[in-house]
Amino acid sequence: MAMPRYAIAYQTILTKEILRFSRIWIQTLIPPAITTALYFLIFGQLIGGRIGQMDGLDYNQFIVPGLILMSVITNSYSNVVSSFFSCKYQRHIEELLISPVPNWVILAGYVSGGVVRGVMVGIIVTLVAKFFADFTIHSYLLTVTVFVLTSILFALCGFINAVYAKTFDDISIIPTFILTPLTYLGGIFYSIKLLPDFWQQLSLFNPVLYMINAFRYGVLGISDIDIATALTIIISFIVALVIFSLYLLDRGIGIKQ
């Protein structure tokens, strides 16, 4: 049976996106593996031995979920923001705008591209983590669910950043000044139980905290946060960002005169 027109358009955008980051695999797939290996070597092996246990686990094991998810967040975001912005910058976004492709298909195609890269990097980083730390997955279903939902959420953030970006500086400001601090302060390297009350409460406003804890529960079976609350927050963010992204596309903000 012939594929519906929208499915062909979606497949085309996704294939284009996968080919794009695969062509430059040395820039896109290898650096997260090296960075993660360094984190494990320095924080896990060298410093982690002196820290001892955290939430009843070796520090080496404790940081595994956070480091995997950090790579997923960074790569899902950067894939979409760089690809869609360069699409605007080189004006080949016009190829899509003049075609009978609905906005939701454009959004789905780019977000899926970000998710595929996030998943590929996540798998690579998990393999690296396996080399440094001994762990077994507590809940595959929850692990995969949080993994994919987080990837979708940050791919959407990257898309919105790209829509508003006018220069290459604009696509690095958000990751540098917002995304990285939120990720590092989201409990990758520590349990928020270690923080004074005020900072614990403040941390609860960081959405990344919920993702990392939900993922940590999936991988290791421990969390500082209620899992149902975490999933509700992640899904709510996704719904809100999808609606906002479609609004931007419908209005042609940042892409049409």
């Binding site: 358009a9 085309t12 294939t15």
Partner: peptide, 15 residues
Amino acid sequence: EEILVNQAGYQGVPR
């Protein structure tokens, strides 16, 4: 070639 194939794909032409 990829540029042409992609444009056709956006228009719903099978690969």
